[in-house]
């Protein structure tokens, strides 16, 4: 009861228990999601294989190496439907119905609350196929897992997940001003679909765009490089920095939006 961390952890456990109960309440059709995940995987593999006919390679990545990237992408898609979409879409609803007031009156960080309340089982099949593909493809690429490699990969996956979260949260925050901007999330998703392929598969100008402006490179290519054991230390540090920067930015932007909300709402 005393320490705040314990309180946040307990809240989280309760929230997720509640979220799961909610899923069971509507009996989400998980079977359908399994089918969708498999169909998606087959489609992605087919599409990728089109670039590999006749001994060609994609941006200097071998077939199994590119599969690791695809695995990371699939994993992130799964995380999106399990965590990001269910939570961040509620911000729009809160703003529309005025129930954001209740969130702001709880003695708990509002960003934490809005980012963790929901949890959906929908993305689990994709998380599973993504992880499976990553592990299988890395083995196929002849990677021997060492603890150091594993740590590195997990760290980069964490950084990529946080970066993805920051991007989503930034877009979701804009709905404090314009409810309609929630659709911008679909634009973001379409743009992030570039992460299916290693960044070196793109022309130089696009590559710069996807590294500097929209950090797609840090979402999938960097974690895949880590898993393949060829990530250099500067890139590792850069990736961590980008993730922290994204997180800080999302936090600052939320505080700014909130200041606007609390001084302007009626």
């Amino acid at each position: 009861m005393g320490n705040p961390l314990g309180r946040y952890l307990l809240t989280l456990r309760r929230l997720w228990g509640t979220a799961l109960a909610m899923q069971l309440e509507y009996q989400a059709n998980l079977l359908l999601e399994v089918v969708a995940a498999i169909a998606n995987l087959i489609g992605s593999l087919l599409l990728l294989s089109l670039f590999y006919g006749g001994g060609r390679a994609l941006g200097g990545w071998s077939w199994p190496q590119a599969l690791v990237v695809l695995g990371v992408y699939t994993l992130l898609e799964g995380i999106t439907s399990t965590w990001l979409r269910p939570n961040l879409s509620t911000i729009v609803g809160h703003v529309q119905q005025g129930t954001l007031d209740f969130v702001l009156l709880k003695p708990i960080d509002s960003q934490f609350w809005l980012s963790t309340t929901r949890l959906s089982l929908m993305g689990l099949p994709e998380i599973a196929t993504g992880l499976g593909l990553m592990i299988w493809a890395a083995a196929k690429a002849g990677i021997r897992t060492t603890p150091w490699l594993l740590c590195q990969t997990l760290l980069m996956l964490l950084a990529s997940g946080l970066l993805l979260y920051s991007l989503w949260f930034l877009v979701a925050t804009t709905s404090i001003w314009f409810v309609k901007t929630w659709n911008a999330i679909e634009v973001l998703r379409a743009a992030l679909s570039a992460g299916r392929y290693p960044i070196s598969a793109y022309p130089a100008a696009v590559r710069t765009l996807f590294t500097m402006v929209l950090p797609v490179a840090f979402l999938t290519t960097v974690p895949a490089e880590a898993m393949l054991g060829r990530l250099t230390l500067p890139w590792l540090l850069l990736s961590l920095m980008v993730a922290c920067l994204g997180l800080a930015l999302s936090r600052a932007f939320w505080q700014f939006a909130l200041r606007f909300y609390t001084s302007a709402s009626s």
Partner: peptide, 16 residues
Amino acid sequence: DLPALDSLRVNAAVYG
């Protein structure tokens, strides 16, 4: 979608 009791448990955690 949930019984009030579930929401109450969450609130109990939030307020410590």
